[in-house]
Design a protein around this nucleic acid. Structure first.
Lengths: 153, 153
DNA sequence: CTAATTCTCTACTAAGTAAATAGAGATAAT
DNA sequence: ATTATCTCTATTTACTTAGTAGAGAATTAG
């Protein structure tokens, strides 16, 4: 039932970019230093988030990454699904990553019915928290600052 | 965010034992056949559930396994925690398996605050579903039968 | 009391995944 | 041109998962 380190890094990186939205691009190195994420590993993760269409990059000197769309339109559910796969605890109750399970009759499986409740609870939360809301939480938890890069995530 | 196969087998096996509660012990072989779980693997899992105190065994001919206490007092949360570890998506929000995470200040971490909500939602469901309730669901989903071993789990 | 049955204990293994690490290449700014 | 930055492809190391194996100990039926 765990989020991988990769997934956590992805969220942390996106939060940095979210707090810098409307500003210049942010370098991998900056995010890496600030969040204590191995640079080459973060590189992979950001490339991956690019294929999801949630970030875009500029190359060369003064290059870097930024959000490809407003943080309001990026849900945690979408990010975690892209990085980790299904949100559901068993894939036989997943909507987007459904896989048949080994039990004799899914429609009559009691375990499945509980797991469906768990899935729904998880999805309900993660679908309804956007990157923008996550940024709001940072500000609430830490009070307002001048520079978004001051935020401790 | 996934339940392992091991965890799923544990629940399936316990459900079989739950449906046979108050009757004779059930052999590993029977559970293995009925649930299509590799026998030697199931063996390990049942031994593990014994250390949790949720099942007990009798050896020798006409030996087997049964629940060590009434199914009302076995929650899915306890079983899954024992087999899988933390229910929380990140261990920095786990009550029983807490581990410090790599972010600079946990108390001000926005991601953590969302994950705490997810944890609470999962725990709320799994703490409140007992094996007895799971058995009830089986009967509801399948209608009443004479022999508990007829149930398709 | 012996044979059959069933659980028990310890160890091993094969495949897959997670978390990096590495090197050479492409692009853009100065 | 040089430097800074992203990009692409591969490799590595450690760990975890799922399963297998064999010999041993307890219990019951005959």
């Amino acid at each position: 039932m765990k989020l991988s380190v990769r997934g956590e890094y992805a969220l942390r990186a996106l939060l940095v970019l979210g707090l810098s939205y409307d500003r210049e691009v942010v370098r991998i190195q900056t995010i890496s230093d600030q969040q204590n994420i191995p640079k080459r590993f973060l590189e992979q993760i950001l490339t991956d988030l690019k294929t999801l269409g949630v970030v875009e990059s500029r190359r060369g000197a003064s290059g870097g990454y930024r959000l490809a769309r407003p943080p309001e339109f990026v849900t945690l559910a979408a990010v975690i699904r892209h990085i980790e796969g299904p949100l559901a605890p068993v894939s036989c109750v997943s909507e987007r990553f459904y896989e048949k399970c080994s039990c004799p009759d899914e429609s009559k499986c009691a375990i499945r019915s509980v797991m469906k409740e768990v899935r729904d609870a998880i999805v309900k939360i993660l679908e309804n928290v956007s990157l923008a809301q996550l940024c709001e939480r940072v500000k609430l938890l830490q009070g307002e600052h001048a520079n978004p890069l001051d935020y401790i995530i």
